[in-house]
Measured scan of single mutants.
Amino acid sequence: MSIQHFRVALIPFFAAFCLPVFAHPETLVKVKDAEDQLGARVGYIELDLNSGKILESFRPEERFPMMSTFKVLLCGAVLSRVDAGQEQLGRRIHYSQNDLVEYSPVTEKHLTDGMTVRELCSAAITMSDNTAANLLLTTIGGPKELTAFLHNMGDHVTRLDRWEPELNEAIPNDERDTTMPAAMATTLRKLLTGELLTLASRQQLIDWMEADKVAGPLLRSALPAGWFIADKSGAGERGSRGIIAALGPDGKPSRIVVIYTTGSQATMDERNRQIAEIGASLIKHW
C-alpha cells in the first residue's frame, strides 16, 4: 500500500482519535458579512469528516447552483462504474471539434489522439474542462443518470439537468442544476469515506481534487503551510461562485467545507476574496 493510499485508508482512524471539535460562531459572522459585502445569498456548511456531524452552517438547506462543483460527483459516478466493471479508466475516447464547448483548455489539445477516461476526469476536476465533463456525462448516460446515481446514494436534493455550459445559467428560483450545502457536503463525505467506492477509487477521487489547479484564489489562499486540501470550485452566471473541499491540518483532511453564493453584482475577484476570507476565519478558529 502506498503512503497516499495509507493516508486515505486511515482518515477515519486518525479522526477518531482527534480531540473533540467545537464550532466557532466567528466564522458564521464572516459568512454573514460576506453576504453584506456581496449583496447576495451565501450558503455555508462545515462537517466533521469522521462523524458527519454538522459543526457550523448557514442557509444549509437553500438551493444554490452547483456550477462546476458537480464534476466531482460526476467522476465519482464514473469511478463507481469502474468498480462495477462497467468502465475502464484506460479506455480512450475520441471526439471532434464539434464536441468542444466553451472553456476546454485540455480537451482542445487532444482532438487528434483523444483522451482516456482517467485523463478526462483529471481534466474535468483539476482544470474544470467543460468538454471533458460533457464527454464523461455521455459515458454514464447524461445528466439524468448522474441525478439517479445521487438518488441511489441517498441524495434526493442534488440534481443535474443540463450539460456544460448551460448548467451554469443560475436563474433565480430555478431548481435545475442545483444542490443544497448540506446535501453536497453529505454526498461528498460519502464519496470520500464511505463504502460506495473502493479504496482505490476513493484515493483516485481525492487525488484529482488535491491536484486542483484553478481554485488557488479561494480556500487555498488562506491555508497555512502543512495543511491538506482537496477541492473543486465552480463559477456561473449572475454572480455565482462555489467551492467544495476536504481539508485539515497535519497533512490530512478532517472536515468537509461547502460554500456557495449566487445573485451578486460583485466582480469575480471580490467573490473570490470573500470566500478566501471565510476560509481564513475557519482556519483561525479551527
Score class of each variant (00 low, 15 high):
24 H>D: 08
25 P>W: 14
26 E>C: 08
26 E>N: 09
27 T>D: 08
27 T>N: 12
30 K>D: 07
30 K>S: 14
30 K>Q: 09
30 K>H: 09
32 K>A: 14
32 K>R: 14
33 D>T: 03
33 D>V: 02
33 D>I: 03
33 D>Q: 03
34 A>E: 06
35 E>T: 09
35 E>L: 11
36 D>Q: 02
36 D>K: 12
37 Q>H: 06
37 Q>C: 02
38 L>P: 07
38 L>V: 08
38 L>M: 05
40 A>I: 04
40 A>E: 11
42 V>P: 00
42 V>Y: 05
43 G>F: 01
45 I>C: 13
46 E>R: 14
46 E>V: 14
48 D>L: 03
48 D>Y: 02
49 L>F: 13
50 N>T: 10
51 S>T: 06
51 S>E: 06
51 S>Y: 08
51 S>P: 08
54 I>W: 07
54 I>F: 05
54 I>C: 04
54 I>V: 11
55 L>G: 11
57 S>N: 07
57 S>K: 07
57 S>W: 12
58 F>Y: 02
59 R>N: 12
59 R>L: 11
59 R>D: 08
59 R>I: 01
62 E>N: 02
64 F>Q: 11
64 F>A: 01
64 F>S: 01
67 M>F: 13
69 T>L: 12
70 F>L: 09
71 K>M: 00
71 K>H: 00
71 K>A: 00
71 K>W: 00
72 V>I: 02
72 V>L: 08
73 L>N: 10
73 L>H: 06
73 L>W: 04
73 L>I: 03
75 C>R: 00
75 C>L: 11
75 C>Y: 00
76 G>F: 05
77 A>I: 14
78 V>P: 00
79 L>Q: 05
80 S>R: 13
81 R>T: 10
82 V>E: 11
82 V>T: 11
83 D>F: 04
83 D>T: 03
84 A>K: 13
86 Q>G: 08
86 Q>L: 02
87 E>V: 07
87 E>Q: 11
87 E>H: 08
88 Q>D: 15
90 G>T: 10
92 R>A: 06
92 R>V: 07
93 I>V: 15
93 I>Y: 15
93 I>L: 15
95 Y>P: 10
95 Y>R: 02
95 Y>C: 06
95 Y>F: 08
97 Q>P: 08
100 L>R: 13
101 V>D: 10
101 V>M: 07
101 V>L: 03
103 Y>N: 05
103 Y>F: 04
103 Y>V: 06
104 S>T: 14
104 S>Q: 12
105 P>S: 09
105 P>Q: 06
106 V>E: 15
107 T>F: 14
107 T>W: 02
107 T>L: 10
108 E>V: 12
110 H>K: 13
111 L>F: 03
112 T>H: 12
112 T>C: 13
113 D>A: 04
114 G>F: 03
115 M>K: 03
116 T>C: 15
118 R>F: 07
119 E>D: 15
119 E>P: 01
121 C>H: 01
121 C>I: 13
121 C>M: 04
121 C>W: 00
122 S>T: 12
122 S>Y: 05
124 A>I: 11
124 A>L: 06
125 I>W: 00
125 I>E: 01
125 I>R: 00
126 T>Q: 04
127 M>A: 08
128 S>G: 05
130 N>F: 00
130 N>T: 13
130 N>Q: 15
132 A>K: 00
132 A>S: 12
132 A>Y: 00
133 A>F: 07
133 A>P: 03
133 A>I: 01
133 A>H: 01
135 L>H: 05
135 L>G: 07
135 L>W: 05
135 L>C: 03
136 L>M: 09
137 L>I: 06
137 L>F: 06
138 T>L: 12
139 T>V: 09
142 G>K: 05
142 G>W: 04
142 G>R: 09
144 K>G: 03
144 K>F: 05
146 L>P: 01
147 T>C: 02
148 A>H: 07
148 A>V: 04
148 A>S: 08
148 A>I: 14
149 F>P: 01
149 F>M: 04
149 F>S: 07
150 L>C: 10
151 H>D: 07
152 N>S: 07
153 M>T: 03
153 M>F: 04
157 V>P: 11
157 V>M: 03
158 T>Y: 01
161 D>F: 04
162 R>N: 14
163 W>K: 06
163 W>Q: 12
164 E>N: 00
164 E>F: 00
165 P>G: 08
165 P>M: 15
166 E>D: 13
167 L>I: 03
167 L>M: 07
168 N>R: 11
168 N>L: 13
170 A>T: 02
170 A>K: 02
173 N>W: 13
173 N>E: 04
174 D>A: 09
174 D>M: 11
175 E>I: 10
175 E>G: 09
177 D>N: 04
178 T>M: 02
178 T>Y: 11
179 T>H: 00
181 P>Y: 00
181 P>G: 03
182 A>I: 04
182 A>C: 03
183 A>Q: 08
183 A>H: 13
184 M>H: 04
184 M>P: 00
184 M>G: 02
185 A>F: 00
185 A>K: 01
185 A>M: 06
186 T>D: 15
186 T>V: 14
186 T>S: 09
186 T>M: 08
187 T>C: 08
188 L>N: 15
189 R>T: 06
190 K>W: 09
192 L>T: 13
192 L>A: 04
193 T>R: 12
194 G>I: 11
194 G>H: 14
195 E>Q: 09
197 L>R: 15
197 L>N: 04
198 T>R: 07
199 L>M: 15
200 A>L: 11
200 A>D: 05
200 A>G: 07
200 A>T: 06
201 S>N: 02
202 R>N: 13
202 R>L: 06
203 Q>C: 02
205 L>A: 07
206 I>H: 08
207 D>G: 06
207 D>P: 09
208 W>E: 06
208 W>A: 13
208 W>T: 12
211 A>L: 11
212 D>M: 01
212 D>W: 15
212 D>V: 10
214 V>L: 10
215 A>S: 15
216 G>A: 10
218 L>A: 05
219 L>K: 11
220 R>L: 14
220 R>I: 10
221 S>L: 03
221 S>W: 04
221 S>Y: 04
222 A>E: 08
223 L>D: 03
226 G>R: 08
226 G>L: 11
228 F>T: 05
228 F>I: 15
229 I>N: 08
230 A>W: 05
231 D>M: 08
231 D>F: 03
232 K>M: 00
232 K>N: 01
233 S>Q: 04
233 S>T: 10
234 G>N: 01
235 A>N: 14
235 A>T: 13
236 G>Q: 07
236 G>Y: 06
237 E>Q: 12
237 E>Y: 13
239 G>Q: 06
239 G>V: 01
241 R>C: 15
241 R>Q: 11
243 I>L: 15
243 I>Y: 14
243 I>V: 13
244 I>M: 06
244 I>P: 00
246 A>R: 07
247 L>Q: 09
248 G>N: 12
249 P>T: 14
250 D>L: 02
250 D>I: 02
250 D>H: 02
250 D>Q: 02
252 K>Q: 05
253 P>F: 04
254 S>D: 14
254 S>P: 06
254 S>E: 05
254 S>A: 07
255 R>I: 12
256 I>D: 01
257 V>F: 14
258 V>A: 02
258 V>Y: 01
259 I>G: 01
259 I>R: 00
259 I>P: 00
260 Y>Q: 06
260 Y>I: 02
261 T>R: 09
262 T>V: 10
262 T>F: 09
262 T>L: 09
263 G>T: 12
264 S>M: 03
268 M>K: 13
268 M>H: 09
269 D>W: 03
270 E>K: 01
273 R>G: 09
274 Q>H: 08
275 I>G: 01
275 I>Y: 09
275 I>V: 08
276 A>E: 09
276 A>F: 14
276 A>I: 03
277 E>I: 14
277 E>N: 14
277 E>P: 07
278 I>E: 00
279 G>V: 06
280 A>L: 13
280 A>K: 13
281 S>L: 08
281 S>M: 02
282 L>W: 05
284 K>W: 08
284 K>D: 09
284 K>Q: 03
285 H>T: 06
286 W>L: 06
